[in-house]
Design a protein around this nucleic acid. Structure first.
Length: 807
RNA sequence: GCCCGAGUGGCGGAAUGGCAGACGCGGAGGCCUCAAAAGCCUCUACUCGAAAGGGUGUGUGGGUUCGAGUCCCACCUCGGGCACCA
């Protein structure tokens, strides 16, 4: 029988055949009433930029391994895929080549779909969603309207981030720390515009608290905690001298240091800034405000530059309510208008920024926390007893804070207050290729939602794609001019579209119930599958997508669309490493892409998958180097060897017991390594096993075991070999379990050390007891030689692994 | 500046406090072949030695321990995140 199978390994033929079968037979389709225990495994759905790149291959290989492994373990695994198909590249292509973004996008989806199938990834294709599909848009818009109704979506005139390259506003999350656009790299400028926001700040506390229950990489959680930036403190009012009844409200995290306040600072954009300025200071203050307004955010945020040019005295004073002392009011660019109250009390003795400013402007410094002995620094921010603080003296920071806040509340001039760095999510974009915001602006009725029966609002096809800073929809009279759904009078449609992060904030919910025509999804479907048991994607989404999606699920629950029993979308998250080349991320824009298609045509998909699994820990970055090609060749070589062992083994095991025992050890090893994402060592384990089979000969059980444990890694090759050997699908086989009786070993090597150095190795029975192990060790000729007849000082015995003789 | 993470052969990387370098790549030698490709076998951390055998070795310096790549302290380098958030 074996002789008949002896044809060479032909990856292309095998891969094509099996991919077609998985698709036609719906092998990985799973229904919502599937009797198997449910498990939801999801890779972040891709932006369709054309054929898959190496990053995709890596991501979807990990996902596919889990899907196939868990399916073999008996789970009914939900493994959907879709496309994040709105976005700027399609629109930019339209501007350049005049191809409609839909056509452009659909073509790219076709290419990406083909390459996802080409790597052998298993999906329930019936559940595919596309952000730009009207059936999906309808529900994106419905969700928006529900949020609007609930007050979670609102319109506001605000200083916003404007990207001149993308011709649109951006969310704070899309502006990098250096003030540039994360997408185009252009320097982002500030503009005051009327924009749409989601009230994510309402969920700041819950978003922060719920992080604790997530099985996510710690660094992602840390990034989200930093981004939310919760800080506890107090707000209170300071009367402004000479401005009857006017007061200044400040936020501080250190109310305990209030007696040390020696001046106040307003942000230059603070509404009171000009009002309180004394006539003789007016000209200078106006000049300062104008200068700051012209400074780019980059310069303003940098701590560079002479401090004495970064602030100005207003001529006004406020009264410190703690001690009744007047303090001068300054403006300074280091105080932000958008955080807290836009005004601070300055306590230079306990805040280094205030210290620096006070020194530059010759303002007094009064310590109110006693620094430790020998302190020779400037501002002291640590703990210590309060001093120079009347009724707070002697208290530690924590107690003094509490007492100061109690006092403010008793006096009715202040209160406990929590502030967040997190801002509301700016979701409107002045672009065409996104989901239209479904409202109408009526001169009489204001913002009127489009009735749900009229959804989806679809953009017309005949628009001019010229970047103007306004959505191209604004120029399209047929789209723009409507009658008000409320009063029937003439009105204008909203022409802004939604940030594509809106689409990706709920797609994983639609996957649970993709054909639902009456709702975005049913609560039953969501309750069955959610939360996602394993989410897999890139670290670059640590804040943006992963924060927005968390917010969405909570908000969807609160507006009654999603069940309130599920508050977090992704139970476990894995962030895989990125592919780098020459030190930088491999990407289309950097022009350093290595196309996977080349490898599919040469070594085949299984070999490429195996490479990604083998090259290193999945969480680590991969450097694409001159050596990479050779490692891929090595993986292909290994698969050929597997093929030969299964089709034309050179010898049959002389000691089948020993080989079968090794097979059981392999099962135990690989099973454990799959659980803990140690795919590189799992591949190494199988390689070791094939080395053993080549040397010792095969048994049927050993070959079957090898194929079964490899089935999630190299699905095509193993499927083909299994069918030839047994008929049927390998991926429908039960995941093998190691027989504990076969895991016991009959002999093991015990290491004998003298003073911690290995001096001898002795084969022993694994069940050897301590005294016997010690006897054997001391009887060793090598040990005797080194002891020179002296008695050992001490003998550490750890049977059956090791004996250490100390002299 | 602050917070994470990581430093192991020529390279990618393995090692519940117990044989450092599994597995693979590359390299050297050999078998097969008229020759090559493919495949197979052996060796491959550094160092002394002809060999047997010895010494050294996981970024640096200390410490804990019978025993440290692994735990603790300090430092260096690289990568990532945050950075006037009061």
């Amino acid at each position: 029988m074996r002789g008949l199978m002896a044809d060479p390994y032909d990856p292309q033929a095998i891969e094509q055949r099996w991919q077609q079968r998985w698709l036609e037979e719906g092998t990985y389709e799973v229904d919502n009433d599937d009797p198997r225990p449910p498990l939801y495994v999801l890779c972040m759905y891709p932006y369709p930029s054309g054929p898959a790149h190496m990053g995709h291959v890596r991501n979807y290989t990990f996902g596919d391994l889990i899907v196939r492994h868990r399916t073999m373990q008996g789970y009914g695994v939900l493994s959907p895929i879709g496309f994040d198909s709105f976005g700027l590249p399609a629109e930019n292509a339209a501007i350049k080549t005049n191809v409609h973004p839909r056509q452009f996008t659909d073509e790219r989806i076709g290419e990406l779909t083909a390459s996802l199938r080409g790597i052998g990834a298993a999906y329930d294709w019936r559940r595919e969603v596309r952000s730009h599909d009207p059936h999906y848009m309808r529900w994106t818009q419905t969700i928006f309207l529900r949020f609007l109704e609930a007050g979670l979506a609102y319109r506001s005139n605000a200083p916003v981030n404007w990207c001149p390259g993308c011709h649109t506003v951006l969310a704070n999350e899309q502006v990098l720390a250096d003030g540039t656009c994360e997408r185009s790299g252009d320097v982002v400028t500030r503009r005051d515009l009327e924009q749409w926001f989601f009230k994510i700040t309402d969920y700041a506390d819950e978003l922060l608290a719920d992080l604790d229950q997530l099985d996510w990489p710690e660094r992602v959680k840390v990034m989200q905690r930093n981004w939310i930036g919760r800080s506890e403190g107090a707000e209170f009012d300071l009367p402004i001298e000479g401005h009857d009844g006017r007061s200044l409200r400040v936020f501080t995290t250190r109310p305990d240091t209030s007696f040390g306040m020696t001046y106040c600072v307003l942000a230059p954009e603070h509404p009171l800034a000009l009002e309180i300025t004394s006539p003789e200071r007016r000209a200078e203050v106006e000049r300062f405000i104008e200068a700051v307004g012209m400074t780019s955010d980059i310069d303003r945020l940098s701590s560079e530059g002479p401090l004495d040019k970064r602030g100005v005295f207003t001529g006004a004073s406020a009264v410190n309510p703690f001690n009744g002392q007047p303090v001068p009011i300054y403006l300074a660019d280091y105080v932000l208008g958008t955080y807290g109250t836009g005004a601070i009390m300055a306590v230079p003795a306990q805040d280094q920024r205030d210290w620096d400013f006070a020194t530059a402007y010759d303002l007094p410094i009064v310590r109110t926390v006693q620094p430790p002995g020998g302190w020779d620094g400037e501002a002291y921010t640590g703990d210590g007893p309060a001093i120079n603080s009347e009724w707070l003296d002697g208290l530690g920071v924590v107690e003094a804070k509490a007492k100061a806040i109690d006092w403010l509340e008793e006096q009715g001039i202040g209160k406990r207050k929590v502030n967040y760095r997190l801002r509301d999510w700016l979701l409107s974009r002045q672009r065409f290729w996104g989901c239209p915001i479904p409202v109408v602006h009526c001169p009489d009725d204001g913002v009127v939602p489009v009735p749900e029966s009229d959804l989806p609002v679809l953009a017309p096809d005949d628009v001019e794609f010229t970047p103007s800073g306004e959505s191209p929809l604004r120029q399209h009279q047929g789209f723009l001019q409507v009658t008000c759904p409320k009063c029937g009078g003439p009105a204008e449609r909203e022409t802004d579209t939604m940030d594509t992060f809106v689409d990706s904030s709920w797609y994983f919910l639609r996957f649970t119930d993709p054909a639902n025509e009456g709702a975005p999804f049913s609560k039953e479907a969501v309750e069955r599958w959610m939360p996602v048991d394993q989410y897999i994607g890139g670290i670059e989404h640590a804040i943006l997508h992963l924060m927005y999606a968390r917010f969405f699920l909570k908000a969807l629950g609160d507006v009654g669309l999603a069940p309130t029993s599920v508050r977090e979308p992704f139970r476990r998250l894995f962030t895989q490493g990125m592919i780098r080349m020459g030190g930088s991320k491999m990407s289309k824009s950097k022009g350093n892409l290595v196309a996977p298609s080349h490898y599919l045509e040469t070594v085949g998909a299984d070999a490429l998958r195996l490479f990604h699994l083998f090259v290193g820990p999945p969480a680590d970055d991969v450097d694409w180097t001159d050596q990479t090609e050779e490692i891929i060749e090595g993986c292909a070589r290994f698969l050929k060897r597997v093929w030969r062992l299964a089709t034309e083994p050179e010898k049959v095991a002389a000691d089948p017991q020993a080989v079968d025992r090794a097979a059981h050890r392999l099962i135990a090893r690989v099973s454990g390594e799959y659980e803990r994402w140690s795919y590189n060592t799992a591949v190494a384990g199988v390689m070791e096993f094939t080395n053993l089979l080549s040397k010792e000969g095969v048994t049927d059980f050993a070959v079957d075991t090898m194929l079964l444990v490899m089935a999630p890694m190299a699905p095509h090759l193993t499927a083909e070999l299994w069918e030839r050997r047994h008929g049927g699908h390998i991926h429908e086989q039960r995941w093998p379990e190691a027989d504990p009786a076969m895991l016991t070993i009959t002999s093991t090597t015990m290491v004998v050390q003298v003073n911690g150095k290995v001096r001898d190795r002795i084969d022993v029975d694994p069940a050897v007891d301590g005294p016997e192990a010690e006897r054997l060790a001391l009887a060793s000729a090598k040990v005797q030689e080194l002891l020179h007849g002296r008695p050992p000082q001490k003998v550490i015995v750890r049977p059956p692994k090791l004996v250490n003789v100390v002299v």
